[in-house]
Amino acid sequence: MATDLLTITDLHVSVDDKPILRGVNLRMQRGETHALMGPNGSGKSTLGLALMGHPKYVVTQGAIELNGVDLLAMEADARARAGIFMAFQRPVAIPGVKMADFLRHATTNVRFPDRKEGEQLIPMKDFRKELRAKMDHLRMDVEFARRYVNDGFSGGEMKRAEILQMAMLQPKFAILDETDSGLDADAVRLASESIAEIGRNNMGLLIITHHDKLLEHNPPDFTHVMLGGRIVETGGVELAAELYSQGYDRIRRTYPEAEAENRAMLDHDEPQLSAVERE
């Protein structure tokens, strides 16, 4: 089981012809926990979205492989069925679609990757039972399942819903993009514990975070620092500790070129950034 391997090689990604990632290399085994850190706008979410197959994030160079199979040739849905999952920094709402219906469909497709459109979904009774158990575990009200996907959810509810989806879909590799932001202290602890329980040992976790709580419960085997669209440094758990106690000053000073690129990207789109910061 621990043999599943995700490799990212010299990955270059552009959005609207604007280069964001400039040669990212990363190698993750299932069962490992990796922290991905870096200042705002350095490209962390971009890496996650490119991994998941967001059509706006165009890979211009490089490779992503899961056990040697080319993920770039697959659409997002095929990647999900191959075992990739991303908990989004800003999940979108799907009005009118009940969480339970959505998840039943998703769970069926991911568990039965060869299912054809229109074929049966997993039986309602079994699904409900499993969903309820997992919701209990995350201390989510059952009412949640009847609400529309992310529609009118509070920031915290949204993040918990992302964890619930991860728990149901049981991916091989999960990218958690600031799944701890927008949560109060109790909720962060609960989320961190749940992620540890669901994911650790069982999945490869790529945790994007600006805080320490999530990593406290999920101590990273590796910490990567992103700046200006590159991973400029990789270390162990002590690197993560350094970054949230001392910030990115040392990194910025050590890698002036990457720092200049990071700055250039930020200057480009002030409005986008302010939206990010407001969160």
Partner: peptide
């Protein structure tokens, strides 16, 4: 919205169908 649903394993067509029925819900 389509991407979000696809990232959970729904095909594009399933995603659109779900979003359209959601629109009418």
């Amino acid at each position: 919205l389509i991407f979000y649903a696809c990232s959970r394993g729904l095909t594009r067509r399933e995603a659109v169908r779900l979003i359209v029925t959601g629109f009418f819900q």
